[in-house]
């Protein structure tokens, strides 16, 4: 039976959580690492996404883990072992860096379009062709303005929250109404304080509405090159 992979850790833990649909989790050791997985056949659906998250969260609460992206399925334990062994070095290094830590998410939504001095212009052309080009030019200038404002917000967050650059990831303007989607890596035991700090700092930002979420396992920081 194929296996849906949940997380990677250095050692098994006592009393692991139940796997998907309540079945026991499978531990597949491979050298200095191992992975947790559930037997899984058939289509992957929305319920399984959140069941996967429950398992990852409970594993991370018991031992230092790297969360695996939902939907990673292998044919059997031998293939799982092979895949893990092939990347043991980089995964082990990432696990040592982020194991035991948690992620806080900060989302900033535009409340109004930022006004950037010296950017953009009014479309004044009278002919269709020129009007088209000027409209396009204005759209690009607006986009640049939003991006510059979002980058300034990201820099301000990093500065005021006093986080290490290695412990933060930003997605600048990931959607038209979103200024920023950021992830912060909190040290063990300090995630709630980090969240409170993020709420306090984002409340002072103008022109955006902030939503602070988490903590949850460090999905964003588990990605390797």
């Amino acid at each position: 039976m194929s296996l849906l992979i949940h997380a990677i850790s250095a050692s098994p833990c006592d009393e692991p959580p139940r796997g998907l649909a309540g079945v026991p989790l499978v531990w597949v050791p491979a050298g200095e690492l191992g992975l947790w997985a559930s037997p899984s056949e058939g289509p992957l659906d929305r319920e399984l996404v959140f069941d996967h998250h429950r398992i990852v969260e409970q594993l991370c609460a018991r031992t230092a883990c790297l969360p695996v992206r939902f939907g990673q399925r292998v044919e059997d334990e031998d293939v799982a072992r092979e895949r893990l062994a092939a990347r043991a070095g980089e995964l082990g290094a990432t696990l040592r860096r982020i194991g035991g830590r948690q992620e806080i998410a900060i989302t900033l939504l535009w409340q109004c379009s930022p006004v950037i001095e010296g950017r953009g212009h009014r479309v004044q052309a009278s002919t269709p062709g020129r009007r088209f080009l000027e409209t396009r030019g204005q759209a690009f200038a607006d986009e640049d303005g939003r991006r510059a404002a979002a980058e300034a917000l990201a820099e301000r967050l990093v500065r005021e929250l006093a986080v290490d650059q290695a412990d933060v990831r930003h997605a600048i303007c990931p959607a038209p109404d979103l200024a920023l989607s950021s992830s912060l890596l909190a040290v063990p035991g300090a995630a709630e304080q980090a969240k409170e700090d993020a709420v306090r700092v984002t409340a002072t930002l103008e022109g955006v509405r902030a939503v602070v979420s988490g903590p949850w396992p460090p999905y964003t920081f588990a990605e390797t090159a």
Binding site: H52, F70, Q72, V74, T94, E103, W216, Y219, A222
Partner: peptide, 12 residues
Amino acid sequence: TDRLLNRGVVLT
């Protein structure tokens, strides 16, 4: 949801 679907270790 975005993190579960788009982030995390990719092995396969």
